[in-house]
Nucleic acid binder design. Structure first.
Lengths: 114, 114
DNA sequence: CCGTATCCCGAGAGATACTG
DNA sequence: CAGTATCTCTCGGGATACGG
């Protein structure tokens, strides 16, 4: 995500927002973190269909955008905890709204020709 | 978008919502329609960087998901108008929130290694 | 336990040209 | 004006295997 990097003029800031929370997994990872800190394996457990590779990648992107924070415990075996930053907390209500919206207009009973 | 089609169990409905309004252009098209009905060329004018092909594709997907409606006037030259459905109207406040969020936490002043 | 490193594929997206 | 039709290519995303 955020392919444009720094110098890109957004027509509207929704674009910026979608870049940060869009994609296949970001919103789900954020939702899974909304009840508190989780370890890597715990997120993976909540999202069984995501691969380790994609989970890592998604977490790195969210971290880079300061939406989540990553805390490493220098132990053996490794322990890493992920949690929402204040920026991350602030987007949760919006994700909740989206969730409600998605539930209300179930993306499922319409038309599909294929 | 919505690659899974009908039979897909969502862990959370945010996923469904992101499928319907995510992607590079959908949110921008919806925002451009929030002040009322627009013709194809008018949307294109508001979003100069979108190609005709992508605009058509985006409009078709939004129409398929019943988020916008398409009205054709049988004239020469052709006239086609796009407007939000009630479902579309209902997602605008959420897009506005996203816009505010994106503006507040400018996706621009952080770190980039590359 | 928490990741990288590779390899790979298809969808998303761009450019350009053409048409009813 | 409002689209198709092609052609191309990047890159998001999946599968699998390996590493500290």
């Amino acid at each position: 995500m955020s392919p444009q990097g720094k110098n890109h003029e957004y027509i509207c800031s929704v674009e910026a927002a979608i870049n940060e929370i869009g994609g296949k997994w970001k919103s789900l990872v954020l939702c899974s973190l909304k009840d508190g800190t989780l370890r890597f394996s715990e997120i993976n457990h909540k999202l069984p269909d995501i691969s380790q590779r994609m989970l890592t990648k998604t977490l790195r992107e969210l971290e880079k955008d300061r939406i989540i924070s990553r805390k490493v415990y220098p132990e053996v075996p490794p322990k890493v905890e992920y949690s929402l930053t204040s920026k991350g907390e602030s987007v949760i209500p919006i994700l909740d709204s989206l969730c409600e919206w998605g539930k209300k207009y179930g993306a499922s009973e319409e038309n599909w020709e294929e």
